[in-house]
Design a protein around this nucleic acid. Structure first.
Lengths: 302, 302
DNA sequence: CGATCTTACGGGATTCGTAAACATA
DNA sequence: TATGTTTACGAATCCCGTAAGATCG
């Protein structure tokens, strides 16, 4: 049975207009074309759908029972294809991304705002999880892309760098070290230190750096959240080392930031995606947005 | 958006086979034809559905979300059209008919049996109602045809005669009149009479005939049902005049039948249908069955 | 006789298949 | 290099529109 959409559409047009002649207009077709279309349709389905004389046109009982079915079929057909088209044209769709907390807390909201302004119909889900989990979510296909730092190259993942993020020292303005523009690791090692709890990658990087310099960190407080650390630092109970992208967040809490030197510590932040899997139009659009704006999101060097 | 069934079918074939080349077989198409079909489809919907290299083929996220939708669309499409085809080929459908009680009680079951043997998938509904109601059900479109006697020609209904049905006298074998082959109205007028209750048409015809002969009927009992009248006659409390088509029913109850003469009384029995409305395939088949077997259903003249 | 559907037929667009080119693992 | 997809192109098919024919009210 080889029946086309157009034939069924013609059937509907005629049934709704109660006339071949009038249906021509809605179908943008000549009368003979309609006639042939219906004739072929009737041959395919095995019986007449209309009884027609020159003056009257009526549906056969079979045509009558088919009418609502045909209407439903075409409605579903049209809406399904419209929906597909909307996904491509970003008038519809879902975008799931993961971001490590330091990114989600700092730069991400601006990107989201600008994406939503451009594509308000796209539903966005953010997974604010630690870097390792973000990467795993990409690998498992739970999100299309993750915003996190660069880690070891993987055979199934791609890292697209956006910018380099430096670590900075966070302290209260009343702190003795606050008068300096640059603060050394050596100086930090003598201070009460507030650290992110493992398995944070920031914690890991700081401890590795400390170890390389054969220093010891005086960790007196720990927390899971950068915002909590900011509050602790603001209260003056200790200092911390935090990503520069979160500088705005810390300053809002009354915390001051100083350059960390000898050596400075930084990491590349970018986009993790799966190899050999295409991005959805929505994800691609977000990817492009991130890339094209990354130059303006350079970590301020203070 | 002009998208054909064939294009979506091609999309499904490729997605299910994970290959253009293999999908060719199921689509009975060459590779280039498939390639072009998908290319056109992708252009219509506004984006890629597959990412393909010579060695790998995968769905895009959009293609992936469209896959189950497309599957459902085609399933519904195919089953709807198959269903329509089944209606025409009598592999499916519903037939609603009305029949006056005397017909429904006598000849109809045999017709139904033979129809069901030929078309077992057709669902049949019988409305066993008095003749006037049967006609009204046709007029209202509640049934496609009615089996009843001929009445005044109507502008919107058609009567197709099947056979002529004579009225006969029903009495118990012990009855004094049982010895006669033919019984006159005059003789009946002297007997206790068992009549169908109004608004039965049989009652009407009998009373009209009696009146024309300026006789009086000695109605002592009345009932709504022919079967009840049969029981009453069998018990010997009176005699009745009944349609000859019900002769078998009465004989089974131990009632004997005699010819009614001076004058004989008969009516044409046939099919009532709507003018200007086509019959469904099922109704048409039943109509044809009735017509082609009516010769063998001639009322026995006793 | 007039309005409407159907048949006939020529032109045009679409689609097909073969063959060649192309791309990737 | 070998497998599988895409492009090129000639051919067949299908579909459309104009014009003529048929039919019913």
């Amino acid at each position: 049975m080889n029946i086309t959409i157009k034939q069924v559409r013609a059937f509907l047009a005629i049934a709704n207009n109660h006339s071949f002649a009038e249906a021509c207009a809605t179908m943008h077709l000549s009368q003979p074309a309609l006639s042939i279309a219906i004739k072929n349709l009737e041959e395919e389905v095995g019986g007449k759908l209309f009884v027609r004389s020159t003056r009257t046109l009526a549906l056969t009982p079979e045509g009558d029972t088919f009418l609502p079915v045909a209407q439903r079929l075409l409605n579903e057909w049209d809406s399904a294809l419209q929906d597909l088209n909307n996904h491509f044209s970003l008038n519809r769709g879902r975008l799931a991304i993961a971001a490590m907390p330091s990114f989600a807390n700092s730069l991400l909201p601006e990107f989201l705002k600008s994406f939503r302004d451009q594509h308000p119909k796209i539903n966005i889900t953010i997974h604010d999880v630690i870097a390792e989990d973000a990467v795993e979510m990409v690998r498992a296909g739970k999100v299309e892309l993750a915003l996190t730092f660069e880690n070891e190259p993987s055979s199934d993942l791609t890292f697209t760098p956006l910018f380099t993020d430096h670590f900075i020292v966070a302290l209260t303005p009343k702190h003795a070290l606050a008068s300096k523009q640059n603060i050394t690791w050596q100086a930090i090692a003598n201070e009460p230190f507030i650290a992110l709890q493992p398995p944070s990658n920031i914690r890991k990087m700081i401890q590795q750096s400390i170890a390389e310099q054969q220093l010891d960190l005086n960790i007196e407080f720990e927390s899971n959240h950068l915002a909590t650390i900011g509050q602790m630092v603001a209260s003056g109970i200790g200092i911390s080392i935090v990503p520069a992208i979160c500088r705005t967040l810390f300053q809002a809490q009354g915390v001051q930031c100083r350059r960390l030197i000898e050596p400075s510590l930084s990491r590349n932040i970018g986009i993790i995606t799966r190899k050999r899997y295409p991005l959805s139009s929505a994800a691609q659009a977000f990817f492009t947005l991130l890339e094209s704006n990354s130059y303006s999101q350079q970590t301020p060097k203070i």
